[in-house]
Write a protein that binds this DNA or RNA. Structure first.
Length: 746
DNA sequence: AGTGCAACTCTTTTT
DNA sequence: GAGTTGCACT
């Protein structure tokens, strides 16, 4: 009786195999970068279906990105084809799926569309016209954070989480208004399913019967609301005596980099205590990088206090020491990158082997300027913002309104675009007609189109004709949408008709000519994207949801071209490249000088993510001069660099003037002395007597009194002093170069 | 209603 | 320095 493993299991290492075959209540897989976690999760799904008799339909697997979800679906199905019947989606896409199936119970229109932050701000602005748009944006952001925390307008904890006393009232107003439109925001895609599961026993029972196995990828990026939803879905520890679903979460606490968006590292740190009986498996074998690269990543992240702790061990031994280049400014940095790229290609590699990483999008500019001139092909990942463009949002708003006639944001956007003589006052009259009685069971219950048809009659002159025009246009489009589609007809037809008949094409063509933009081309691109969907209400709904939930304009073509990748460090998660250049490793930029505590730890994790993308070669660059917000700053190397054991990297100072020996790399913040380079030179460290110390009261000519938060030494500019003023303003100075900042006695 | 100018801000951003 | 936003003007 041979117990040879089937081939799809045989190639796993022992820990991976253990994770795949694990049975019990719940499992936490701590999977370091490059340890094959996607492989484990997909294999586990296939294994459960194949060997354990689990119905694919009863498996729910959630991820955070569409790309990851797609990869999971593809890979699981390639092992076991019936896996395609499992629900494998992003958290938000699962929420939308769930809400459409339980729309009535959730009090939603099954054709709801999803408001992005811009739409949210528009909605709130309609409620608070006396506030500016950017104020509304800020408030909407606070509301979104509240939703990330799983807080509702009537949650007692809301007041302690948000200092603004008006928050509760605004949040409440906003939510009521949003419910009235029948639409949802991103937070609702998590929060409303959770509420429904909490409050509706029938839905809860049905859902828990269905999903017996729940897996979560990139669990370290989940927020409190997602955790709540997960707990409700799993039903573990409920009083009703149900067994609860088998819960398996996979993540890496060292790769949690979305705290600023509400991600909660504690979700993963505390998982075992919240789900008693959890088994933990660590995957620490790395199949991607050379050990020399992992050591650098490990050294930096080991300075974090709040981590579970693990050590990555490379399967690929050896590899060159990562290179650290100390450069003059970002032009030298670009030149250095060019050199690395050319060398790679000369050695038989491809341009696409190389990725240039930076913390902020603004840093890509120098590369974009230099590369075409020097013949380096490149592509920028992220920041496409196609769906944020004016003309694109216009066209989509027409479609959204067609889908849901209660969508007030869409209505306001397009009712008078292009201009039809419907001014602000007319729009208000129409909104009033639709909204006035919605709660009291008004005649139109928020239906803006029906309301406009009636209230439009009471308008006069231009506005009256305009609204007739508009309604005629919309009903024509609705007619086309509902008419039976001939073979091969797609939504593209509807979009083409829409952009022509609405006058959007004409309107934007005129702008193109003046400003040299390509708005008409973008409109055509929407029609092109729509051609993947059938011409029906359902097709339209799917089309809009896909756009709402996936703003990345997935272009296969772009991925296939051989070009250097320019990308923010955040965007690299889940990717890998043979050659990685992590740029801008300067104190004040990465990390920023005001980052400390949890924020500083998150930056270390970001460094860890960036570095562990590299398979063969890692380069780090740090510039002495950095142009930021239009000003030139002298900076020192990032403190992260001094957290790396000196013998792990090959440092070179390629500076024109004042080239200094490598040993002189400063070690900001008085970091503990470490063997090798870089490290503080004896006698030249930050220990020099200086009146500039944290806590010292100061006075500035322009800003008034303040207190020094932090002092960082620089190689030749003296200390860099970060000051918080009584006005609340924070600023940094080189006392060496300014006479305006003085010590305040007392 | 549409244009022009001054003022403000300026990490990261899966969904 | 660049892009966006708000306000005022015609």
């Amino acid at each position: 009786m041979g117990n040879a493993l089937p081939p799809y299991l045989a190639s796993l290492n022992p820990e991976q195999l253990e994770a795949v075959r694990h049975q019990g209540r719940s499992l936490l897989i701590l999977a370091g970068a490059g340890s094959g976690k996607t492989r484990v999760i997909t294999t586990k799904i296939a294994y459960l279906v194949r060997e354990r008799g689990v119905e694919p339909e009863s498996v729910l697997a959630v991820t955070f990105t569409n790309k990851a979800a797609k990869e999971m679906r593809d890979r699981a199905a390639s092992i076991e084809s019936t896996c395609s019947r499992a629900v494998m989606r992003t958290f938000h896409s699962f929420g939308a799926w769930f809400l459409r199936r339980n729309a009535a119970a959730a009090g939603l229109d099954p054709n709801f569309t999803i408001y992005d932050d811009d739409d949210q701000a528009t909605l709130l602005h309609g409620l608070l016209p006396q506030n500016t748009r950017s104020e509304c944006k800020a408030m909407v952001q606070a509301i979104s954070r509240a939703k990330d925390l799983g807080l509702e307008p009537d949650s007692p904890d809301l007041s302690s989480a948000f200092s603004d006393p008006g928050m509760r009232r605004i949040y409440d107003m906003y939510d009521r208004k949003l419910r009235k439109t029948g639409n949802v925001d991103f937070g609702d895609l998590i929060g409303l399913p959770a509420r429904l599961l909490r409050e509706d026993e029938a839905v809860r029972r049905r859902t828990r019967q269905r999903f017996r196995v729940i897996l979560v990828d990139e669990y370290q990026d989940s927020n409190v609301a997602q955790f709540e939803l997960l707990r409700l879905l799993a039903g573990t520890g409920d009083a009703d005596g149900s067994a609860g679903a088998y819960l398996c979460v996979v993540g890496d606490d060292d790769q949690s980099i979305y705290r600023f968006r509400g991600a909660e590292v504690r979700n993963i740190l505390r998982f075992p205590e919240i789900f008693p009986g959890t088994d933990i498996i660590k995957l620490e074998r790395n199949y991607r990088s050379f050990q020399s690269i992992l050591d650098v990543a490990g050294d930096v992240v080991s300075h974090n206090a709040g981590r579970i702790g693990k050590k990555l061990v490379a399967e690929r031994l050896g590899g060159a020491k990562p290179a650290l280049s100390l450069l003059d400014d970002q032009d030298s940095e670009a030149a250095y990158c060019v050199k690395v790229c050319r060398e790679r290609v000369k050695a038989g590699g491809r341009w696409s082997d190389v990725a240039i990483l930076y913390r902020t999008n603004a840093q890509s500019l120098t590369f974009e300027k230099e590369f075409p001139r020097l013949g380096i092909p490149y592509r920028i990942v992220g920041a496409s913002r196609f769906y944020d463009r004016e003309e694109v949002k216009d066209a989509l708003a027409y479609l959204a309104l067609l889908c849901n006639p209660r969508d007030e944001v869409a209505f306001k956007r397009v009712v008078n675009k292009p201009t039809r003589g419907i001014g602000e006052t007319s729009v208000d009259i129409l909104l009033e007609a639709a909204g006035g009685g919605a709660f009291a069971g008004g005649a139109f219950a928020g239906d803006l189109l029906s309301a406009s048809a009636e209230a439009g009659e009471s308008l006069k002159g231009k506005a009256r004709a305009g609204i007739k025009d508009f309604l005629g246009l919309v009903s024509g489009l609705a007619g086309l949408l509902d008419a039976p589609a001939a073979d091969g007809e797609t939504l593209a037809l509807l979009v083409q008709r829409l952009i022509k008949a609405s006058g959007l094409v004409e309107y934007h063509r005129a702008q193109d000519e003046v400003a040299g933009t390509q708005k008409v081309a973008n409109l055509d691109e929407i029609a092109n994207a729509a051609s993947l969907y059938p011409r029906s209400r359902e097709g339209l709904s799917t089309f809009l949801e896909t756009i709402d939930l996936d703003r990345s304009l997935a272009s296969e073509e772009a991925a296939a071209t051989d070009a250097v990748t320019l990308i923010t460090m955040h965007n690299t998660k889940g990717l890998e490249f043979p050659v990685v250049i992590a740029t801008g490793l300067e104190q004040g930029l990465f990390p920023r000088d005001d980052e400390e505590g949890e924020e500083l730890e998150e930056q270390r994790r970001l460094f860890y993510v960036a570095v562990t993308r590299a398979k063969d070669e890692l380069h780090l660059t740090s510039c002495r001069w950095r142009r930021l917000h239009g000003r030139l700053f002298e900076t020192g190397p990032s403190r992260f660099l001094s957290e790396i054991r000196g013998d792990l990297i090959q440092a070179t100072a390629a500076r024109r003037a004042d080239a200094r020996p490598v040993g002189a790399v400063p070690s900001p913040y008085g970091a503990r002395p470490q063997p090798g380079v870089p490290g503080p030179r004896p006698g030249a460290g930050p220990r020099e007597a200086s009146p500039w110390r944290a806590g010292q009261a100061v006075y500035h000519d322009d800003y008034g009194s303040g207190v020094i938060l932090k002092v960082s030494p620089t190689p030749s500019s003296g200390p860099l002093v970060v000051v918080r003023f009584e006005t609340g303003r924070q600023a940094q100075f080189f006392p060496k170069f300014t006479t305006k900042l003085e010590i305040q006695k007392g």
